[in-house]
């Protein structure tokens, strides 16, 4: 598990009060409520200094810790995406 995935699984496990693995679909497991979705977006944005735009919004990219990791890598790997708020 890389550092990004580790941080995300840690956040998810703490927030959802349940051990969440890198490939666990926590929405499908019924662990997340509607307020949690915004908290997760805010966490990812503030922790990895990026902005989640509507074009990025796709339940699939946020469904598991590994998918969020790939999303973060894609966003932070492209300089034009990092400071566009």
């Amino acid at each position: 598990m890389n550092d990004i995935t580790r941080e995300i699984t840690e956040f998810l496990s703490a927030a959802l009060r349940s051990e969440v693995g890198p490939d666990d679909d926590y929405f499908a497991l019924g662990l997340a409520d509607s307020l949690f979705a915004l908290e997760l977006v805010t966490f990812v944005e503030s922790r990895f200094s990026l902005t989640v735009e509507v074009e990025d919004l796709d339940l699939e990219s946020f469904r598991t810790a590994n998918r969020i990791t790939r999303f973060v890598q894609r966003k932070t790997g492209s300089p034009e995406f990092t400071e566009n708020r």
Binding site: S34, L35, L38
Partner: peptide
């Protein structure tokens, strides 16, 4: 996108 109207938009 549909599916995010409550958690994200209304939220």
């Amino acid at each position: 996108p549909s599916g995010l109207g409550l958690s994200h938009v209304a939220g």
